[in-house]
Each structure stands twice: as C-alpha cells, then as structure tokens.
C-alpha cells in the first residue's frame, strides 16, 4: 500500500485507477472475513437493540399523544427539536456523561428511531375511520378493548412504516458511532480512510452497510404483510 504522503502530494493523480488500491478486491474480503463479520455483527446488534427499545417506548407514547390531545403538542414538539439536532452533536452531549461506550451510541440511536416511530404510529392511529370506532363502541367495546382490538391493529400499516423508516435510517446512522469507537461497519469505513485511504475496505464496508439496510427493510416488509393480511385482500 502506498503511503499517505504520496496521496496527499499527488492529489488529482490519485484519482485515476491505482492498481495497488482498487475499489474492490476479493483478496481483501477473503483475508479480512473475520473483521468484516465482527463489524457487521456489531452493526446489526446496535441497530436491533435501538429499534426494539425505541418501539417499546414509542408505541405507548404515541397512544398517549393520541388519547390526550394536550400531550400531542409537547410530544411532537420535543421529537421535532430532537430531529433537528445532528447525531454527532447528540453524541457530543451524551459522551461527557455516558463516556466512550456503546451506551452513548445506543441512547442516540434510540432517540432518533423513537421519534420516527412515534410520528408514524400517531399518523396510523389518526387514520382509523370514525365509522369503525362508532361501530365498535356500538358493539359495546370499552376503551381498552377498542385500543387493543380495533385501533392498534388498524394502525398497523402506519406503525410498520415507522419501523421500516426507523430501521433503515438507524443502519445508516450507526456509522456515526465511530466517533466513540462503536460504529460497526462505520469503524471500517472511517478506519479505511484514515489508514492510507484504503479503498477496498471503505467500499466493502459501505456495500455491507447498504445491504444490511435493504435486507432488514425487506424482512420488515414481509412482516408487514403477515400482520396486515386485510390490506392484501383489498388490493387483490
């Protein structure tokens, strides 16, 4: 591998295809399979942990915002402000208190996923037709049964949309965790840049990252079909 200095000096010349630093190399992949898999595993675990915790917190929050009109403003306002603050700044707020640990990354990821899911769940709940609610009340449904058996199931498409957007965004966002050393594949992307601009490592990690997002999105799409069979019957 050429030295960092030669790159900096040659500038534009680097641009061409340097046979010593190709964009993709099978030998890189085969020689570094363990490293790649370890980074992928960290990436997947951070994503899953963040999305699962965010979902568990977000759905009750959305139900609260839906049931009590006075809470809608504060909950949506808080999530809006949070959304405007970049991830790197959020990690910067957390790091002095939570340290250089995965917890810092995880809290940040949970907060961002949380608001996507809250907003989409709320949209889903609001789209439940008033006639359906009337009919259910007429049939003697109480508040709890109404929520559990009518409103939440009918809000499923909204909830699942939120989950999908949150999951795909989280996969991309994990890379920023590199700043505290827990960025999954992001560690390899930035690491590759800082180690003599090592292209095969940057590109392989990027491709794995995009592939992970698409695979998880597809899995959630299939899950959506399973939990909302009626949407398929209607379109078929």
């Amino acid at each position: 591998m050429p030295s960092k200095v030669s790159y900096a000096v040659s500038g534009w010349a680097v641009a061409g295809d340097d046979p010593r630093n190709p964009w993709f190399s099978w030998s890189y992949v085969s020689q570094n399979t363990d490293t790649l898999l370890a980074a992928l595993r960290e990436h997947l675990l951070l994503t899953l942990a963040a999305v699962v915790v965010a979902t568990v917190l977000a759905i009750p929050l959305a139900v609260l915002a839906y049931r009590f009109g006075t809470l809608t403003g504060p909950i949506l306002g808080f999530t809006g402000v949070l959304y405007t603050i970049p991830s790197l700044a959020l990690f910067a707020f957390l790091a002095p208190f939570t340290g250089i640990t995965p917890v810092t990354v995880l809290i940040g990821l949970i907060l961002y996923a949380l608001l996507t899911i809250v907003r989409n769940t709320l949209t889903g709940l609001r789209q439940v037709p008033a006639e359906v609610l009337d009919a259910a009340r007429g049939m003697g449904y109480g508040r709890g049964a109404l929520l559990w058996r009518i409103e939440l199931p009918l809000a499923m498409p909204g909830i699942m949309t939120g989950l999908r957007i949150a999951t795909v965004s989280t996969v991309a966002l994990v890379t920023v965790g590199e700043i505290v050393g827990f960025g999954g594949l992001g560690n390899l992307i930035i690491g590759g840049f800082n180690t003599n601009f090592y292209r095969p490592q940057i590109m392989t990690a990027t491709l794995l990252c995009v592939a992970l997002a698409l695979v998880l999105d597809l899995a959630l799409l299939l899950l959506t079909r399973l939990v909302t069979p009626w949407t398929r019957r209607r379109t078929a």
Partner: peptide
Amino acid sequence: RAIPTVALLTIFPLT
C-alpha cells in the same frame, strides 16, 4: 436513506 452519509464523505474524495 440506506446510504450512510459517512460512506459518501469518505468515498468522494478518493474519486
């Protein structure tokens, strides 16, 4: 949404 910003920021300077 699936493409990490960090990836493009590292790849583009090397093209």
